[in-house]
Design a protein around this nucleic acid. Sequence first.
DNA 1: TTGTACGCGTTATCAA
DNA 2: TTGATAACGCGTACAA
Lengths: 340, 340
Amino acid sequence: MAENVTLKQIAAELGVSAMTVSRALNNLDNVDKKTKKRIVEKARSMGYTPNRVAKSLVSKRTYTIGVVIPEISHAFFAQVVSGIENVLYETNYQLLLTNSAEKTAREKKALETLLAQQVDGILISCSEETEDFSLYKKIIDSGKPLVFFDRCIEGIGASTVSVDDRKGAREMTQHMIDHGYRKFAYLRGPEISIGKERLEGYRRALKENGIEIRENWIVQSGFKEKGGYEAMIQILESDSEIPRAVVAVNDPAAIGAIEAIEEYGYSVPEDIAICGFTDDIRARLLKCPLTTVVQPSESIGRKAAEKLIKVIENKNEPIENIELLTDLVIRKSCGCNKPV
Amino acid sequence: MAENVTLKQIAAELGVSAMTVSRALNNLDNVDKKTKKRIVEKARSMGYTPNRVAKSLVSKRTYTIGVVIPEISHAFFAQVVSGIENVLYETNYQLLLTNSAEKTAREKKALETLLAQQVDGILISCSEETEDFSLYKKIIDSGKPLVFFDRCIEGIGASTVSVDDRKGAREMTQHMIDHGYRKFAYLRGPEISIGKERLEGYRRALKENGIEIRENWIVQSGFKEKGGYEAMIQILESDSEIPRAVVAVNDPAAIGAIEAIEEYGYSVPEDIAICGFTDDIRARLLKCPLTTVVQPSESIGRKAAEKLIKVIENKNEPIENIELLTDLVIRKSCGCNKPV
DNA sequence: TTGTACGCGTTATCAA
DNA sequence: TTGATAACGCGTACAA
């Protein structure tokens, strides 16, 4: 295969030095107009493309951003990535995408590879499994720019971009309370930022309204359909009673739970009202459209990428915890247009 | 910030040469066991990470694959990327993701950047807009491994991985014909591979059954909801008659068309039956679930990545046009469980 | 205006 | 078993 054309080759063809070619092609200094013209034309005709690898080795900049997400095929993350990509396109950075598949080990490997690749910065949304933050800390302490998005670790020296999960969950729960529900269950996510924050929002809302918090109705569901399904079954079988309303950590979990509810012969929202979080693309299309909390996914990606680039380009950029606002989307699954 | 540790630094600490460190860390040759142990430990304690940029400069390999897709937030492509990512993870390649946003200009820039980055190979699904294949041809002719997926250009020297679109469209249309429909309209995509193939499948099916093909009911819709909506309106207003059945180039177009149909006071499938292509995540969830053709999106990504890696690692790898099979998913929108 | 020398971090090659 | 040297392609610094 035709090897890539190099500065040296162009120089040889033209009988000038490689340096002159470099200068001409980078619009630098004073290069004789005629020489420059010859060089530019020759470069084009030979199909020259600057070798970024060599450039990076010298400049210690790769103009590449590493992104670690827990699951690409999850629509929310796809949209976040889309937001990131748009910013990087505008700013001439490249996107190196890795997937942790929710596994700590895979996330670790991804981060190490990104560092080896000399990415200029890292955007990461933590895997569901990760409990040990020491690797994040090490990277941050080494001075490598890093920004968390969506599933963030605050207080370890990096900026974060997330939605105000606690507030969103609290408002959602409050909405259900306002409608008269009193017997609540909660499908909780793992012990990472958003899981914790949303549960806390749920707890607050109940507490503020003097409603009993049944700990055995706060069940671990993870972030996926299957976990939601299983957690819901656990609740339905745990007691002689069933909850009147369920708040789920996200839409996939809620969708799984609905399946369980219906398998047990109950209907949504007449017997059990339920709401989610995320506004999954499917939420509005369900037989009983899901009430949920919208997260501005594309904006999260944009903001995170913008912040990261600021950090990269200005070492004094302050650490920020950026919170975007959520909105409630009231559909049918919360039963708020029907009597309790 | 703490600069990255280099071989030289480790060597200096240990009083050996950089070369020995390199050998020890790469499990090469004969390195004294004790020396090796000392080196490995030192490397770990100093937090050494090999610099891939420097490695690449020497080896001319980056273990990086560039992917160009038309739209990340499109669920189908997100799944394809997921399939690609899985293969790359298993084979220790990295994924450089770019988005053409369906624009030729952006696609061109993406390809040039990927080449400058010295990716080992390229996976691309053509943008909707692209009509000039000379850049693809130039890249392929230069010997840079490239594999098309989903939206492919055949016959210009690169392998392709796609579904048998023509067959899928033909079967879908045949299914509607079997159910008794005779007055068909078609929402067509752009003039790229899959657009052409599906239209051809549609034409064949009608022809084989001796059904009239109304050219003014074959309308350009593009690949998105908005285009489908507008195309459908054009059909509904073009004539005193309306079609009894509509075959759409993909699900988003069909979804847009359904909106138009309903706005005009018709219902699906009673007045107008419709089917799509892709099995979008929303298809099954629509008020009237959409009959469609399933494409094995994740497999497309896997196969394309696997083929590309074979091409990279074996220069004699033959050019193939890999076709994956589609399946019909009969839901309600084709009206096949109701009288015509 | 143009050229030379050198270094970025790694590996291949040949010598010790 | 280990080391010295050169090379990958480019850009900085200095010299001509």
